[in-house]
């Protein structure tokens, strides 16, 4: 279980997160939705240890990880697929996947997970020797997800996985997310595509200018008039 308690994040004078609290229960798909600049990315980056909060605490299975290094957070089971995929463009698909398992030493386990990723994303197996920068957007997204899975995360963070993808691919990515979840990985999903995110989410939080303003199950929020107006284009 991941608990975020009252965190504040500043960028110089900018107060980007103002007392954000939320919980991600094991086995769930939890989504964080909100407009551009609301603070979704900052929230994920803070929990991953890339940005330090000025206040508040973050607990993973009861352990305080607020001041834990990004490296140790990966080791403890959080894997983060950043916005814009961020694959290593001049490295091959295989090298990218191997880097996902950077902290692991269990050769056999890594080989098994690599096989699992290739089964999930056959296109990556075909392209394993190809430079990651030459893949299409959708393929890069698959690579970024596959790379994150290579660390065997308990919780997978996904930042805007549908960004810039054609509708058909978006559907495919969401199916993959559901599938990864049903094989036991908890998911924290940040999306601008609120309707897709709410459809698959067990629980959802709405963030506006650095504060959580609403929460509920995916189904509940889809019915909410405010949400319909602000995020679902109706």
């Amino acid at each position: 279980m991941l608990e975020i308690k009252n965190i504040d994040v500043h960028f110089g004078m900018i107060h980007a997160l103002k007392g954000v609290s939320f919980t991600v229960n094991d086995g769930d798909i939890v989504t964080l939705i909100g407009a551009n600049g609301a603070g979704k990315k900052t929230t994920l980056r803070t929990v991953s240890g890339l940005k330090k909060p000025t206040n508040g605490e973050i607990l993973l299975d009861g352990k305080n990880i607020t001041h834990t290094s990004a490296q140790d957070i990966v080791r403890m089971g959080i894997s983060h697929v950043p916005e814009g995929r961020r694959v290593f463009p001049t490295m091959t698909v295989l090298e990218n996947l191997e880097l996902g398992a950077f902290l692991r030493r269990d050769k056999d386990g890594i080989a098994r997970d690599l096989k699992m990723v290739f089964e999930r994303f056959p296109i990556l197996a075909d392209r394993r020797k190809q430079a990651a920068g030459t893949l299409s957007g959708g393929e890069q997204q698959m690579l970024a997800i596959g790379r994150a899975l290579m660390s065997r995360p308990k919780i997978l963070f996904l930042d805007e996985p549908s960004m810039g993808l054609a509708p058909l691919l978006v559907q495919e990515i969401f199916n993959i997310i559901k599938d990864i979840n049903s094989s036991g990985t908890t998911i924290l999903l940040v999306e601008q595509n609120a309707s897709m995110a709410l459809q698959i989410a067990d629980y959802a939080y709405v963030i506006e200018t650095g504060s959580i303003v609403l929460s509920g199950t995916g189904a509940e929020l889809m019915q909410s008039e405010d949400i319909k107006k602000a995020y679902l284009g109706g």
Partner: peptide
């Protein structure tokens, strides 16, 4: 080598490298 791959990863994208658990 492992450290060599880390070097290449850090030089390509520092944040992404950190998310791989690279120091």
């Amino acid at each position: 080598t492992r450290i060599g791959k880390a070097m290449r990863a850090v030089s390509l994208d520092q944040d992404a490298a950190m998310l791989m658990g690279i120091n």
